[in-house]
Nucleic acid binder design. Structure first.
Length: 956
RNA sequence: GCUCGGGUGGCGGAAUUGGUAUACGCGCCAGACUUAAAAUCUGUUGGCCGCAAGGCCGUGUGGGUUCGAUUCCCACCCCGAGCACCA
């Protein structure tokens, strides 16, 4: 028996495979027939850092490798390529820090990554490798940009954008994390600089809608939906009038709650709102009486960082605009105007109507600044039924001063705990509340105030057996004295008095609806943000919110609109290491596209590439490169000096793999049709709202201009869970817990490494590395080695007790399960069933065929050792192109099955019966079983349930 | 706060349409081999009570549906992720 020498075996086969071009993908002649047997398996290509790979990085690559090998064995024409993404900030910052030119550093890092990947034994077709920094690649990145430019989807802008003071460049919204630069953690500023922006918002609707059809993890889909942030609402104009007699103007607001328009008691503008800017400038003195105060407030809020500005916990601030007012278009009432920085400038119209009664933020502001609160929606709880008995009630909130507890009653007959609730006659809610509290509890009280508006409840009154509608007004009352007066005997028998703290009350109150008044009092808020029925809203009173939105919008001449949170993609970086934006600024013709024949616009090779920090790219200083001729008028012109963001190259790389050497176009349409779309895409969750949105956007654009044939690039997406360090923390140099795959592979072998990473746990779940646990995988590999080599040595006639024929069912089951598990990424259970099979095989005499099947099933996971043993078995061709084993679906169940016998659902015994045993026979046998009979002794059997082949349950 | 995931032995984790909970692996314990150790092999291993036979309890908590619930329904608690003053 040969010793298992992983290093020798792995080197040998990696060399062989490369030599024989085993994994080279070829296009098939006929697109139509090729299409249904193709499989495009894609990894998110790495961004090669100077650190090299740690053991966590290859997890996804191993998974796609297993999957693609499996698919190849199933006869699919597999495309499984790999490449490198290397433009952008991280590479440039690394280069600056280490004083190596980025182009040199990147090539060095790529080389190191490739070496590390190669020893793991992947089946990549390296002849298709792409490198986003190669000018032959970025020629096409630039080409796509030009198409966007030509379609008007790339535009120049000077709006304030996110600026990272440390990286010295503008950033897209997607590049921020909690208002900080995602790369370096610096707090970003708002800075107006000239920049190129892509109109991704034009695609917002399609990007959102098409999410539904994707076979992606729910969490990623949800992240994208959140990020796009669609909301339907109304745009409504408010007339503005001037105290000094100026000409009235109007300001549009965006709202999703037009149904609350009658409750709009102020108009609020963001500090950046154009109207505010105009009203406070030199030319419009006299419009605002407090112009200076407003100007100062605006200046102050512009100084705040994004984080300070959008901190939800912070108290709201603002300034009233004196000397002007707005007119509520529904009520025609004059309402005050404020400027406040809780209103964001770049969402909706930058102005909102303030409805304190039905919006949490407005309520906070209104309370502080004394804006009136007007309730216009009555919340509805429960569902409306026909023939309801209607009651108008009050519910009383009574607090005792001495210990702060609240008064409740317990209904002795039903066990209900509730506040005092009583019917209203012709009196006011206050009078009714005082009367009811006294009658039911004997306490004298004084009503202080109503707690918000009425609430509406629909419920089934159990005690009276009727459906009931209740309109309830919560009222707060003060105790006149803390001693209760005598109650009638009748009341004493009916109701028990309880004094409860707020927390106790929340727990004990038996009907959730009865907590409303108490909550309004304790939390000191009467805000109702739910939909309901309109009240106090003129002719719209009585309508439900959903209906009223549209009708009120129409009534005031507004329109229904859709808004998105998604912002256009800030696409230029004031940095060196990126694709030059292929545009030319001509003194006469303006912005002109570089002619396609002149692409690529190569990044000039320079010594000094540090960012300038002025808002200009370092390229601007290279006059030889910058100064050029206008392609149209041949006059003096300058090149655009901004470069593209890191995400440009990765937004379309999956297309280039289909046709990596094409000099004439992005991709040959025939090849595109054969391979598109990507069938399976694997990578980390960190790309949820950047790469995966950008790539979808570009893909849809390319679809629109006829470059690609599908509307979505990636049909199925899987996220690998993170591998943490042995200490449970994220693997990082800082923690000293990084495990290097090269070391692991040198000691234990690539096959062990691969099997372990797939066996660790569910693929999509994060998990800590454990070298100890990995040894279990090594043992498994060694046991397979031993089983196969001893079988070969003994000429496949090892004598053991038993007979390999007994394994037939297990083999069929395992073949089925391993195939299914790989198909849906259940690698851990696939390996577990292979272990079960091995355990069984070790105990009996196995045939050459069976040994072969074991190796084939294991081949995608452990490609080297299975190849070695496969060839030792006498096979001439590679195991990796051998057809995947088939199973016999008639032989998935043993001839004899164990049926458990339960009595009243508890397992009391088991019987062995033939597979298709007659139900009555099984039931009879079950009762005769000695263990079971014991429990049945002297009992009356009520019922027997039989689940074929599984369980007999006897009910006694 | 909203949304999406997820809570199962000492640990990683398995469990078809509701049908023997803890497969497989790690660790632990015991045994074999060895002068010894490592490696390997064999066996045990959810908790409680019991000498034992055996019994009871057990999938975050509390209810419910069912002959039977890790699985379905309701309420709640905890952990992870995304979004968050988006009107």
């Amino acid at each position: 028996m040969k010793q298992y020498d992983h290093t020798k075996i792995e080197k040998k086969w990696q060399k062989q495979w490369a030599k024989k071009k085993l994994y080279k993908t070829v296009e098939q002649k006929s697109v139509d027939t090729a299409k249904d047997k193709k499989c495009y398996v894609l990894d998110m290509f790495p961004y090669p850092s100077g650190e090299g790979l740690h053991v966590g990085h290859p997890k996804g690559y191993i998974a796609t490798d297993v999957y693609s090998r499996f698919k190849r064995m199933q006869g699919f024409n597999v495309l499984h390529p790999m490449g490198f993404d290397a433009f952008g900030l991280p590479a440039e910052n690394y280069a600056i820090k280490n004083k190596i030119h980025p182009s040199v550093a990147v090539q060095k890092n790529i080389k190191r990554y490739k070496e590390q990947l190669e020893i793991i034994g992947f089946d990549y077709d390296w002849s298709r490798e792409v490198d986003t920094t190669d000018s032959e690649y970025y020629r096409w990145t630039q080409w796509i940009f030009l198409q966007l430019f030509k379609k008007g989807l790339a535009y120049e802008s000077n709006e304030p954008i996110n600026w990272c003071p440390s990286c010295k460049t503008g950033l897209a919204n997607e590049d921020l994390e909690d208002g900080k630069c995602e790369r370096c953690g610096s707090v970003v500023e708002k800075k107006p600089i000239r920049q190129w922006v892509l109109r991704i918002t034009d695609y917002a609707d399609r990007l959102l809608k098409d999410i539904d059809g994707l076979n992606w993890p729910e969490s990623i889909k949800e992240s994208q939906r959140n990020w796009i942030g669609r909301s339907e609402g109304s745009e409504i104009s408010f007339t503005v009038e001037f105290e000094n007699g100026g000409k009235p103007g109007s300001i549009p607001v965006f709202t999703t709650r037009a149904d609350t328009l009658f409750g709009a008691t102020a108009l609020v503008l963001s500090p950046e709102h154009l109207w505010v800017t105009l009203a406070t400038d030199e030319n419009h003195k006299g419009v605002l009486k407090n112009s200076e105060e407003v100007r100062q407030y605006v200046a102050l809020s512009k100084k705040k960082t994004e984080i300070e500005r959008t901190d939800t916990g912070k108290e709201k601030t603002g300034v009233k605009l004196e000397g002007v007012w707005a007119v509520n278009p529904a009520t025609k009432e004059k309402i005050p105007m404020y400027v406040a920085d809780y209103v964001l400038p770049d969402y909706g119209t930058g102005a909102v109507m303030m409805v304190p009664a039905h919006d949490e933020r407005d309520f906070q502001f209104a309370k502080k600044y004394g804006v009136p609160v007007k309730d216009v929606v009555r919340p509805v709880h429960g569902e409306i039924h026909d023939n309801e008995e209607v009651r108008k009630t009050i519910s009383a909130v009574v607090q005792r001063k001495s210990d702060g507890k609240f008064l409740f009653v317990k209904w002795k007959e039903f066990g209900w705990v509730a506040p005092v609730i009583g019917g209203m006659d012709s009196d006011t809610p206050e009078q009714a509340a005082e009367r009811e509290v006294f009658e039911e509890t004997g306490y004298k009280t004084k009503a202080i105030r109503r707690l918000g508006s009425e609430t509406e409840h629909h419920f089934y009154a159990d005690n009276k057996k009727v459906w009931r509608a209740r309109f309830d007004q919560p009222v707060y009352l003060e105790l006149i004295d803390e001693t209760a007066h005598l109650r009638t005997k009748e009341e004493e028998d009916r109701l028990e008095l309880l004094w409860l703290s707020y927390e106790e009350a929340l727990k004990q109150i038996t009907h959730a609806d009865n907590k409303i008044g108490l909550n309004r009092f304790v939390k000191d808020t009467t805000v109702v943000t739910d939909f309901g029925v309109l009240i106090d809203s003129g002719k719209f009173s009585g309508l439900i919110s959903e209906e009223a939105k549209k009708k009120i919008t129409e009534f005031v001449g507004g329109k229904m609109v859709v808004k998105y949170k998604l912002r256009d993609w800030v696409f230029s970086r004031q940095r060196y290491w990126g694709e030059p934006i292929p545009l030319i600024h001509c003194e006469r013709c303006g912005v002109v596209a570089v002619p396609e024949k002149d692409l690529p616009v190569k990044l000039p090779d320079v010594k000094s590439y540090e960012p300038t920090g002025t808002g200009e790219s370092p390229l601007a200083a290279i006059s030889k490169w910058v100064n050029t001729k206008c392609p149209q008028c041949k006059g003096k012109a300058k090149r655009e000096t901004n470069t593209m963001p890191q995400w440009a190259g990765s937004s379309w790389y999956y297309l280039r793999y289909m046709d990596p050497k094409n000099k004439k176009e992005v991709v040959d349409p025939k090849k595109e049709k054969q391979w598109s779309p990507v069938d399976l895409y694997v990578g980390g969750t960190e790309h949820a709202t950047r790469h995966l949105i950008y790539a979808r956007f570009w893909h849809k654009f390319l679809y629109d201009i006829g470059v690609v044939s599908t509307t979505e690039p990636f049909m199925q997406l899987k996220n690998q869970g993170l591998i943490m360090g042995e200490d449970g923390r994220k693997m990082s140099k800082r923690f000293g817990n990084v495990v290097n795959p090269d070391d692991v592979i040198a000691t234990y072998g690539a096959d062990t490494f691969r099997v372990y990473e797939m066996f660790m746990g569910p693929f999509e779940q994060g998990i800590a590395w454990s070298t100890q646990n990995m040894i279990g995988s090594r043992r498994f590999i060694e046991r397979v080695w031993k089983l196969v080599t001893t079988s070969i040595d003994a000429n496949l006639s090892r004598q053991k007790n038993g007979d390999s024929a007994n394994l037939e069912v297990l083999f069929n089951k395992t073949v089925k399960k391993v195939g299914e598990d790989i198909q849906d990424f259940g690698f851990n259970t696939a390996i577990s069933s292979l272990m079960i099979l091995l355990n069984a095989m070790e105990k009996v005499l196995v045939s050459k065929e069976q040994v072969g099947v074991l190796l084939q099933l294991l081949a995608p996971f452990a490609p080297h050792m299975t190849e070695e043993l496969w060839s030792a078995l006498g096979n001439k061709n590679s195991i990796h192109i051998a057809p995947w084993p088939a199973f016999d679906s008639t032989k998935l169940v043993e001839e004899k099955v164990t049926v458990i016998v339960q009595i009243n659902g508890k397992v009391r015994g088991q019987i062995v019966v033939v597979k298709d045993a007659n139900e009555d026979v099984v039931k009879k046998e079950a009762q005769e079983n000695a263990e079971v009979a014991k429990w049945l002794w002297g009992q009356q059997i009520k019922k027997i349930i039989y689940v074929p082949g599984r369980v007999v349950n006897i009910v006694i």
